[in-house]
């Protein structure tokens, strides 16, 4: 330490540069934890995906080559079905969350009486867990305790409506529940960015006679562009991986209508204990996620000059 300080002293302004071991010692716990519990597990997922590995059938374990992947691609209709639902789930959720989140951010960015309270209230579902969201929405959707029962009592709709058991209504039902919890994320993030737009821009535009709509499209939206790209990407990855809500609310049902790929993986791991096949599914999901993310970043950068 003393030597390091002396050396820094000698170099004058560049004293933040240190050849000592200090930075490595400080960063070591983070690196060790991440190597041990992130990097190594990922490597083992790739390795397991090439093996038969089932906790309930240990006698069949061994090297399998690409057999897991062959089964997955050609013999598993549930894989394709879950992949399709995952895409539908992510796209619908992200588009709705972004639109509503942006609208909400614009609203609470205005000056009005009770703004602080309004913000606290509309942002509050952000901290709620997936399982708790399920508890709440299960009460709301249940045919005997839910809103539809009270609406039916009031003469709107009919008794015994179970939106979660009907393949026609289950999708909008889970989308709504997740929106409740997901919109605040976008609203908080976009609000922070909205505040950094200089007021002068809007005033200059007003003086030039630009309508509120035009100010939105020519000032607000271009300014928020980077924040929108980043937040949609992070949130899309997160929604892709989001298992808690669907696992507890529908368990992928009815008839696997709401099974996403990670939910399929989780049920293979937790219920079937089929680690080999689950790892192959994981590998495929990981590759798809990475590919889509890179594609999205490329495409959004591609349009970068418009702003």
């Amino acid at each position: 330490m003393a030597i390091a300080v002396a050396r820094r002293e000698r170099r004058g302004r560049r004293r933040t540069v240190s050849r000592s071991r200090t930075p490595y010692l400080l960063i070591a716990p983070s690196v060790l934890l991440m190597v041990g519990f992130l990097v190594y597990p990922i490597a083992s997922v790739f390795y397991y995906s090439l093996r038969n590995y089932n906790l309930t059938r240990p006698w069949g374990n061994g090297f399998a080559g690409l057999e897991n992947f062959r089964r997955l691609l050609f013999e598993d209709p549930l894989f394709w079905q879950s992949l399709g639902f995952t895409a539908q789930w992510v796209v619908v959720e992200i588009v709705l969350q972004l639109v509503l989140g942006l609208a909400l951010a614009l609203l609470v960015n205005e000056t009005f009486v009770g703004r602080a309270v309004a913000r606290a209230l509309v942002f509050s579902p952000w901290a709620v867990s997936g399982v708790l969201t399920t508890s709440i929405w299960m009460l709301l959707y249940n045919p005997t305790t839910g809103v539809f029962r009270y609406l039916a009592d009031a003469g709107i709709g009919e008794h015994g409506t179970s939106v979660l058991a009907d393949t026609g209504t289950v999708f909008p039902a889970v989308v709504l529940a997740e929106l409740w919890r997901g919109v605040p994320f976008f609203a908080i993030l976009l609000l922070a960015d909205l505040q950094s737009i200089p007021r002068d821009l809007y005033e200059a535009a007003s003086v030039d006679g630009a309508s509120r709509l035009r100010r939105f499209f020519h000032i607000t939206l271009p300014h928020l562009r980077d924040a929108i790209v980043l937040s949609t990407l992070l949130r899309a990855v997160w929604e892709f991986n989001n298992v808690d809500l669907l696992y507890t609310l529908t368990a992928g049902g009815p008839a696997n209508h709401t099974t996403t790929l990670p939910l399929y993986v989780a049920s293979k791991a937790i219920n079937a204990k089929d680690f080999g096949y689950g790892s192959a599914l994981t590998t495929v999901a990981f590759v798809i996620l990475l590919f889509c993310s890179i594609l999205y970043l490329r495409l959004s950068k591609f349009g970068g000059d418009r702003a």
């Binding site: 991986n241 993986v265 791991a269 994981t282 990981f286």
Partner: peptide
Amino acid sequence: PGAMMLIP
């Protein structure tokens, strides 16, 4: 994905 780290 967190769900995919379950097994390892």
